[in-house]
Design a protein around this nucleic acid. Structure first.
Lengths: 158, 158
DNA sequence: GTCACTTGATTGACACGTCAATTATGGCAT
DNA sequence: ATGCCATAATTGACGTGTCAATCAAGTGAC
């Protein structure tokens, strides 16, 4: 009987559910605060953060996708929505006619700057303040163990 | 200077990102496995699990929503898609003409049963096996501290 | 009985995500 | 220069999620 046939215990499953449902609840809570504070979704925030840190407040679409770890089609769709709202603009790339330069508009920069402080404070209130320093460290170790394990598994398949 | 104006440190922010991104990666990995193993989304699985455990393999729509903690409109949309695929059926409720009884079809039961073992084993492989017993316990404590804190905050607003 | 109110559930509009095309350009071998 | 393939980015189809509006049926006041 190989270990790959064993199923988690009741307790293991309970912890798994707590873990994943809590992460979801946190994401939802932060997303809602960001939305009501500044009208941004968390995707918007991610994009604006990357652009605001980029040289000249602009990036090639593919560089942006790589930076934030998104699939290109996801980014394309999202940029379309953000462009409609005037947060970013698309310009032709001078060095490669296929390329698109995504530039942060003045309006986008303002919205992002206004959102940033409140968002970071919300992270502190919802996450950091909920945990003791030991728990915070433990959370980091757990996340990192999970990620290493997941990466190993995924790589093995590839 | 009130503490509500402070922003997380670089380290705190790093841990937050690891935490939330890892949870996301786990959800994605498990969802992908479930999908390729059995053609179910994780939402499908949640619904089928609840129905399969219910008396007579059926539940009132509102009871199902409460059981799995979904908004009713989300459930309605999802049930529409599952109904099209023959996994569940909607029947009139005998005691309340407004109500809908959601029943697990034979096909739905079969798909669920076939998916269950592999899905539980995937949870073990991706989550439980990645952690030492101490880390697993720590993950549970962290999740529960986060949830308590979040609930307190949310309640205070209400 | 009927009017207002509540409750059960669905619907429509729209944001978001993924996958599989598609379009257009770049770049290279011949 | 032509033909072929790789690359940059977008598009379309569809599943998923939220919010607000809708609709139908129960319920209580009068």
């Amino acid at each position: 009987m190989s270990t790959t046939r064993r199923v988690p215990t009741r307790d293991e499953l309970r912890i798994w559910r707590e873990y994943i449902e809590t992460a979801d609840a946190l994401r939802a809570a932060l997303g809602a605060r960001l939305q009501s504070d500044s009208g941004l979704s968390s995707g918007d925030y991610t994009v604006l953060l990357a652009l605001s840190e980029a040289d000249g407040r602009q990036l090639r679409s593919s560089a942006l996708a790589a930076q934030i770890g998104w699939e290109r089609s996801r980014l394309s769709h999202h940029l379309g929505r953000m462009e409609r709202r005037g947060l970013i603009a698309r310009e032709d790339c001078p060095t490669d006619n296929r390329g698109a330069e995504i530039v942060l508009t003045a309006a986008g920069a303002t919205v992002f700057e206004d959102s940033n402080g409140p968002h970071l404070r919300a992270i502190r209130e919802v996450f950091v303040d909920a945990l003791t320093p030991e728990q915070l460290a433990a959370a980091g170790e757990v996340a990192s163990a999970l990620r290493v394990h997941l990466t190993d598994q995924t790589d093995r398949i590839t």
